[in-house]
Design a protein around this nucleic acid. Structure first.
Lengths: 231, 231
DNA sequence: AAAAAAACATGATCTGAGTCAGTTTTTTAT
DNA sequence: ATAAAAAACTGACTCAGATCATGTTTTTTT
């Protein structure tokens, strides 16, 4: 499977599961006592930018879109698959709100972890804190790559990027069912819906991909990767 | 002084100084023993993307540009003034290189802090690790704001943003000497040099700012802030 | 099965900002 | 002081991709 070497529009969070291994039995007990399992249906809002941040959200199952918004625009920051966590930036001292919104791209099962408990764990367990540091670094790096790609790659590169990322990193397969419509793909790639449609058509015309309903199939990841690299 | 409420192109790192207060005497001793003071002249490279990351760099004095680069392009991620630190993302387990380059915008005094010592401090002092978490969160938030601004604001907004940020957050004054030429301002705002020139001229024509050599003076921060907000 | 509503698709047009090709001003070197 | 080099500036041109308007297909509802 070809992995992109340069910067990529792709943004997936690091798997959190290893973090929890660092907790002591006592802490795990506290953890279990202070978590809340919640289900979200496709399209439902998991957290809302600007709202009071009472908890971190661990994604057990599903796929979540994490995005910034203002009155007019939207910017998708990350795709968070199972194993990911939402809300870490709210741990900063200077704020007690969510800094971004999150929405379920498909039915999702999540755990709400009390923010005070979370803070307590970090402040008292250096191994856990180290893991969190790691997650934050990874997430930052992903964002950097995405930022660079969005600024310097053009539409075809970003689309190619995104398809490869979804195939390689979410589904681990060149064929997958993507629960996104054209509008949502546009949000994800930072393009207009029309551009997404035109680019996908071009890719189809050149037999790089096939699309049948929601089923995507990447026929030529090598070529797609070239497009992604070049621009 | 008017502070921007929405997202801003501005990117300044959080002041690291509070972090070191969390170290024990013993750790401080270790810290002192493993640090190296280095001076950089304007234009010199402080760290190079892709190079082996043997240390974090604490900025004692000066102003540093932190940026991503590939064969063709550049993206300025942050301005790091004194009190800031460079290289934290290299703490991630999955890598031992610098993920960005850094260059001195003006003569700079820095301390190189051994990465293994730094790791050791994080892994053994939860209070310190908590502070680092905080720095990472702040930095991530700044990057998010900048990303959003770069994607959705247009040139005048980004320029206005940047001027206000420099005035408010670096110099704490509406009049300041900026050691950047037009090309460097272009890199900072993500615009072409020509666009920067055109925009600054427009701002001057409308008496929003005055420029005399390297001395900038903001006459109408209210209006500038409106431009920044609107787009 | 028909009607309504989403989603998908396509062509025409517009525009912000980059590129290019210069000129003028300022700075640096001799 | 003067030549050379660098930085600042200007106008003309171009283009990627957004927007708009409209049409077609698919899905959902009743």
């Amino acid at each position: 499977m070809i992995e992109n070497t340069g910067f990529s529009s792709c943004t997936l969070t690091y798997d959190m599961n290893t973090c929890f291994e660092k907790l002591t039995d006592e802490e795990l007990h506290l953890f279990e006592k202070n978590k809340l399992e919640v289900s979200y249906k496709k399209g439902e809002t998991i957290c809302k930018q600007g709202a009071f941040a009472s908890h971190m959200t661990f994604i057990c199952k599903g796929l979540v879109r994490l995005y910034l918004e203002d009155e007019v625009n939207t910017l998708t920051l990350q795709l968070v698959p199972s194993g990911g966590i939402i809300g870490l930036t709210s741990l900063t001292k200077n704020s007690n709100v969510f800094h971004y919104s999150a929405m379920a791209y498909q039915d999702t099962i999540a755990q709400h972890l009390d923010i005070n408990m979370f803070r307590h764990l970090i402040e008292n367990n250096a191994a856990f804190a180290t893991e969190i540091t790691n997650v934050l670094c990874e997430s930052t790096l992903q964002t950097y790559g995405r930022f660079f790609s969005f600024m310097h790659k053009q539409s075809f590169g970003r689309m190619a990027d995104t398809l490869l990322c979804i195939a390689n990193r979410i589904f681990n397969s060149m064929e997958f069912d993507l629960p996104l419509n054209r509008k949502e793909l546009a949000d994800l790639t930072g393009l207009s819906q029309e551009s997404v449609i035109r680019i996908l058509k071009k890719f189809k015309d050149e037999d790089l991909i096939e699309i049948e309903g929601k089923t995507y199939r990447i026929n030529d990841d090598k070529k797609l990767n070239e497009i992604s690299q070049h621009g």
